[in-house]
């Protein structure tokens, strides 16, 4: 058993006895390894008495779980209706330029800051009322 497999098995064991433990397990694994890959899926499947296909089906359904880790820092930009109404689309070209190859830009549909968009999230930190300069700064500091 590799160290990773061991660690995954530990995480699964921490949630033993909970009703419907799959999502909490996947969140913890995603948080620790930056992804839920095939190796992790196999361990989870074994522990929960499911097929690997069952586990993979769940992992691939949700936007929050990734099959491969991406080492780059991530900036999530809200591009839902309320932020569109406040001009987020006009900021996207500049944001892509500021991000370059170093930062991963991703789209999120709504951070719940809808009267103060455009807004972005880095880790658990939120930013609102962004203009081009402020967004570029958020991306630079990511």
């Amino acid at each position: 058993m590799s160290t990773k497999e061991q660690r995954v098995a530990e995480i699964v064991a921490e949630h033993a006895g909970r009703e419907g433990p799959m999502l909490p397990i996947l969140h913890d694994i995603q948080h620790e390894f930056g992804c839920v890959d095939g190796e992790a899926e196999r361990v989870i499947a074994g522990a929960l008495n499911l097929s690997r296909a069952d586990v993979h089906g769940v992992v691939s359904f949700y936007h929050d779980f990734h099959e491969k880790a991406d080492p780059r820092p991530e900036v999530q930009i809200c591009r839902a209706e309320a932020c569109k109404a406040r001009g987020v689309e006009n900021l996207m070209a500049g944001a892509k330029q500021a991000a370059g190859e170093r930062v991963k830009l991703s789209t999120v549909y709504c951070l719940g800051l809808c009267s103060a968009g455009p807004s972005a999230r880095v880790g658990d930190t939120l930013h609102a009322r962004l203009d081009a300069a402020a967004l570029a700064k958020v991306i630079e500091n990511a």
């Binding site: 999502l23 909490p24 929960l48």
Partner: peptide
């Protein structure tokens, strides 16, 4: 508290229940 995983459709009640059970949020 249980944390969702970025699927908008899980706001639909039956899909939410599947998700809580640890399944695809169908």
């Amino acid at each position: 508290v249980r944390t969702g995983a970025g699927a908008y459709v899980c706001g639909e009640e039956t899909s939410l229940l599947n998700s809580l059970e640890g399944k695809r949020g169908e």
